[in-house]
Design a protein around this nucleic acid. Sequence first.
DNA 1: TATGAATGAGTGTTCATTCAT
DNA 2: AATGAATGAACACTCATTCAT
Lengths: 212, 212, 212, 212
Amino acid sequence: MREQQMLDAAVRTFGRRGYMAASMDEIAELAGVSKPLVYLYLNSKEDLFTACIRREADALTRAVRAGVRPDLPADRRLWDGLLAFFAHTGEHPDAWSVLHLQARTHGEPFAAEVAAMRTEIVAFVTGLVVVAAREAHSDPDLPEDEVAGLAEALVGAAESLAAWANATPGVTARQAAATLMNFAWAGLGDLMRGNRWTPPPEAPQGRGEPRA
Amino acid sequence: MREQQMLDAAVRTFGRRGYMAASMDEIAELAGVSKPLVYLYLNSKEDLFTACIRREADALTRAVRAGVRPDLPADRRLWDGLLAFFAHTGEHPDAWSVLHLQARTHGEPFAAEVAAMRTEIVAFVTGLVVVAAREAHSDPDLPEDEVAGLAEALVGAAESLAAWANATPGVTARQAAATLMNFAWAGLGDLMRGNRWTPPPEAPQGRGEPRA
Amino acid sequence: MREQQMLDAAVRTFGRRGYMAASMDEIAELAGVSKPLVYLYLNSKEDLFTACIRREADALTRAVRAGVRPDLPADRRLWDGLLAFFAHTGEHPDAWSVLHLQARTHGEPFAAEVAAMRTEIVAFVTGLVVVAAREAHSDPDLPEDEVAGLAEALVGAAESLAAWANATPGVTARQAAATLMNFAWAGLGDLMRGNRWTPPPEAPQGRGEPRA
Amino acid sequence: MREQQMLDAAVRTFGRRGYMAASMDEIAELAGVSKPLVYLYLNSKEDLFTACIRREADALTRAVRAGVRPDLPADRRLWDGLLAFFAHTGEHPDAWSVLHLQARTHGEPFAAEVAAMRTEIVAFVTGLVVVAAREAHSDPDLPEDEVAGLAEALVGAAESLAAWANATPGVTARQAAATLMNFAWAGLGDLMRGNRWTPPPEAPQGRGEPRA
DNA sequence: TATGAATGAGTGTTCATTCAT
DNA sequence: AATGAATGAACACTCATTCAT
């Protein structure tokens, strides 16, 4: 469909140039259509950008979901999800740029759109963490706050590794997933078993922790 | 100095509005000087932005370094570094927005600038990981690639948590640091001891991992 | 006929939005046909507008003529004409807007079109004035120039009252006609009888009448 | 001043082309400045148009007021006002087009602006009519409604004659004023003396007055 | 006969950048 | 050392107009 061509061109242009630097002229030309046609199908630059975000957010979550089989154990599910995630972002770097960088840099309407997707992914990871905790018989259930922070850290690490894998030639989705999985699963396991790192007491005054 | 006022205004404006949406008019007004003066000191919008990035990247690395005492053990050094990092980003959200979001979203020249800083931080973390490995007598030294990936993941998680801590009221630098430290140090420790999570064999054909 | 629907829609749209602000899209939609069909029947926006002007000018002059019975005396003919005029413009405000405002505001081709109609109406009024003069035995026939000016003034007053009556709720066609008739017929009568207002001598120099 | 040049160019362009057909490019070029400068001084096309209307409305009312000496009798005041009016509109046809045609054809904001001026002029004329009535010892004071209608008609006639005088070569301001004065003053005088034209009784049904 | 789909040309508006002083 | 005044180049968006069917 004509609309898909336009969205393709838009994702590519937005992903490479950024939202503001991308011109509708360039997008139209890249799509091989006239500018008014772009406006006919997608009403404005804002709407076009939103449509890109939505399409790519959908595609990404769908890809991750498709990679995970619910009947497998939690660790395997996390592994498969990561693998799917890195594979997808690696194959669609412009889309990943739109979601990870551009959408978050240009105001609430767009940031909110991508935040919805992220929330979904964080929830997915949180679920895995909870299941893992249960499987590990972590007697005192992890406090909710901590779980949220962990999921956030995990997702953040994944996002960062995606960019890194894209930028570093020779790093495959499998390697990225393995790195993160090794790091995270062990950490989680230890946490479940109650092995925590104890921070030093808060510095009483003046010095101690860095001044600011 | 006059130039610092301008950079202050620029960081604030770039951080809040984004690189392209920030207008030189607004920056000059906020700095309380005339526009031509801005051009006199900093030659163009690009140069001004670059100067912002450099100044704030310096400030951030300096803050982190200042927080770390080289005579303490590796875990404590990591903790202090994280604490300093979260404290600084929390106190200078506009600067963090410039470094973490804006600079990476607007083309190579700027992305490269911030990449340099990031490289430095990753190297610092890598150093800690290596020391930690040695302290743990991790017999077969971790392969370089893996160490790089780990540091990358750690830094990425930290960056993500910084944004999360900024956006979530009631989360202090200490809490963010604790969350990450707990998660990471255990994971690293396990890794050193050779406890790795073994990925399933690569899917031979057709199905298995998602094709995307 | 299909064409009439289009003209109806066009008159309404042109009358309310103005020539330039009216879009062919809106006209076509209001007429319930597709845009290319409008172009098939009426060749261009200009031609469409011209057709509107012509149709409405015809309708107006026809309405005025239909209101006047040639066998009645001049004053009664003027009265009936005015009544018909105010009634028609009151019932077709969009058409009146097209003729009185839009057509005169958008360049020669259109202004000329409506000027033709106006000439006809002025001629009609002029005829009445001449007859009235003859009936009043105005000994020295009124000079042609003067008659033309009088007719022009009368028609102008009528046009202005039409807009006023349209805009002022509660003013009927009859009232508008009465106001003008009272004013005009007495003035004409006096004129016929040679009662003129004598202007002061032209100011010889410098001051007197305003220089502007 | 630079701003006056721009307004001159704008009045000329708006007056000749109409509000919508006038392009900011053309206005800027005619004023001999760059387009951004026009936007610097006058903020938008709307504001520019409003500024034109205001300036020309002021100029016109000032010209009329300057032409009238309050110590002279009412008829002479009316004459002088008309003379000034026709002289001014004759000398500034584009300005007159802006006020009389363009401003009224493009929506409330502009129409309201010029309506204020018109109200002032109508009030001036109304005042003269009332004074004239008193001087003529018109025993039963004219009803307010009637006075309003008369003033409206007079002003309308004047406006119409202004356009006519502009369009008809060889007609001077003096001639236009004389025509209207002759016509109006006699009519008013008659009216004062109670000589009214009696309309025929309203048609009872069906036919009679035009069907409209 | 009638239209869905498409566009060339142009609009108002903004902004980084530069002289003249 | 500092600025008021000015602009070239671009951008998002619209609309009268026309094919292919």
